[in-house]
């Protein structure tokens, strides 16, 4: 099917139509001014951790949200982090950028799909656990990718209500996976949709690509390692029953994702044991 050029073209056109409709809907979350300023500072090589911390601290609500998230147990820091500049030093600039964004996105999450917030937080921690287990660079940022992997579901719910209803009905009545119902209704899925918003917000490809591809893992694509991590973390989070991704079923774990990371079932078991130990009380 994917080899047929006409169908491919048709699919691309359907995707583009959905993208335009979402972007014109007026309901797409905008980046608040303070966040735009923080993004600018993060991207400037002249900015110091102190300056960045000071800028974030000007917004008390944002600061409180960031500290709450950093100390929520999902980053696994052994000592409590009480100041924004400490958070900036511990996490690094790129992670702070993602975190600032996450904190504004998470708020709207549970309003859209009950259980999505828990699923996202558990997937965040699991992504970081996999990254730590494999000694991959930047486990915190990998965690943020896990946190945002289902962002597209929120956007779909907020911008295309009718289609969101059609997707939800298919999920409920036919017992379909959410992303397969999205593909049927829209010709694209929440990975694509989340990617469009993040692209608009000028988030780097190393964060966007794994979100776009988490239901379609291909080892030859850019950032395949991270995509594999988030693909695996999403499935393990569903297997352990933390929160809800909006459907009853679990997508199949691609063996190639394990191969790409050099992981075996023993590694999967160790990670699931840690998830069970760390997250059960917090999230079940």
């Amino acid at each position: 099917m994917s080899g047929n050029p006409i169908e491919k073209e048709d699919l691309a056109a359907r995707k583009q139509t959905v993208r335009v409709r979402i972007e014109r809907s007026g309901n797409l979350p905008a980046l608040p001014g303070v966040i735009a300023k923080i993004f600018e500072m993060v991207d400037s090589p002249q900015t110091t951790a102190k300056q960045l911390g000071a800028e974030i601290s000007k917004d008390q609500v944002l600061s409180a949200k960031i500290l709450k998230l950093v100390n929520s147990g999902f980053y696994g820091f052994s000592q409590p982090i009480s100041t924004i500049s400490h958070a900036v030093t511990m996490l690094g600039f790129d992670s702070v950028k993602s975190l600032v964004m996450s904190s504004s996105v998470l708020e709207i999450m549970d309003q859209s799909l009950p259980g999505l917030w828990k699923h996202s937080l558990a997937c965040a921690r699991t992504s970081a656990l996999v990254a730590e287990h494999l000694n991959l660079p930047d486990p915190e940022e990998v965690g943020v990718v896990g946190l945002l992997h289902d962002l597209g579901k929120v956007i779909l719910c907020q911008t295309l209500e009718v289609e969101f209803g059609q997707v939800s009905r298919r999920v409920e009545e036919k017992g379909m996976l959410f992303y397969l119902a999205e593909l049927e209704v829209l010709g694209c899925h929440h990975g694509d949709i989340g990617g469009w918003l993040l692209e608009k917000w000028a988030i780097p490809a190393k964060v966007i690509d794994p979100i776009v591809d988490h239901h379609d893992f291909r080892p030859q694509r850019d950032h395949a390692e991270r995509t594999a991590v988030v693909h695996i973390a999403d499935i393990l989070t569903r297997a352990e029953g933390f929160g809800s991704g909006g459907d009853q079923k679990i997508p199949r774990l691609e063996a190639q994702a394990l191969d790409t990371l050099g992981m075996g079932l023993e590694d999967v078991e160790k990670i699931m044991d840690r998830m069970n130990d760390e997250l059960s009380e917090l999230l079940r």
Binding site: I235, L236, R238, A239, E240, G241, Q248, K249, I250, R252, L253, A255, L258, L265, V268, E269, M272, D273, N276, S280
Partner: peptide, 25 residues
């Protein structure tokens, strides 16, 4: 619920193992 979640993958060795681990927990 766990059985329903995994019901499509009864023949997939990796998924069967993941289900067993989750069931053990």
């Amino acid at each position: 619920e766990l059985e329903i979640r995994f019901s499509d993958w009864a023949d997939d060795q990796i998924m069967v193992q993941i289900k067993h681990i989750a069931l053990g927990h």
